[in-house]
């Protein structure tokens, strides 16, 4: 990605955006086990909300909420800024379909994006799409965010996400 010290640059930028920050990610589908989905959001006051509904085997919806330290919100901002997702556009991404849908909503200072697309099985899907660069950006950002959220939820609640 950025070779010239992206960390420092984004830290400087986030100083001015302390208040207006919101992130939400959703992935899900409706199938023979009903509506199965995973969704999480980071709110400006530090609340991390997490919901995971899988009707397979047990039909309980897991909903968890915890307040994270401001340093973690800053890290989420840094990950988002370094990904440069705000420069992308979902206009040419595959539409959500019966297989599933993903949604990514980010509010960062004056910029607000609300992207959606279908499920991405592998990088092959990304490379064969009309906007591989944008979709690749989305693909990796989502993995990085999920990775952080799963660690936070797993460590705090001792449950295994998915």
């Amino acid at each position: 990605m950025n070779s010239v010290n992206p960390t420092k640059q984004s830290q400087r930028k986030t100083k001015m955006t302390e208040d207006r920050f919101y992130v939400r990610y959703y992935v899900g589908h409706k199938g023979k086990f009903g509506h199965e989905f995973l969704e999480f959001e980071f709110r400006p006051d530090g609340r991390l909300r997490y919901a995971n509904n899988s009707n397979y085997k047990n039909d309980t919806m897991i909903r968890k909420e915890v307040v994270v330290h401001p340093a973690i919100l800053e890290e989420v901002k840094r990950i988002i800024q370094d990904s440069e997702i705000l420069r992308e556009n979902d206009a040419k991404w595959p539409q959500p379909d019966r297989v599933g849908r993903q949604e990514l909503e980010i509010l960062l200072d004056d910029e607000h994006i609300s992207f959606n697309t279908g499920k991405i099985g592998s990088l092959m899907d990304v490379n064969n799409s009309p906007d591989p660069e944008g979709l690749r950006c989305f693909y990796y950002l989502v993995q990085d965010l999920k990775c952080l959220v799963f660690s936070l939820i797993a460590l705090h609640f001792k449950i295994k996400p998915i």
């Binding site: 705000l86 556009n89 004056d110 910029e111 607000h112 994006i113 609300s114 992207f115």
Partner: peptide, 9 residues
């Protein structure tokens, strides 16, 4: 308040 909005969402 966001001045730039983008996406199908």
């Amino acid at each position: 308040k966001a001045t730039s909005k983008k996406g199908r969402g």
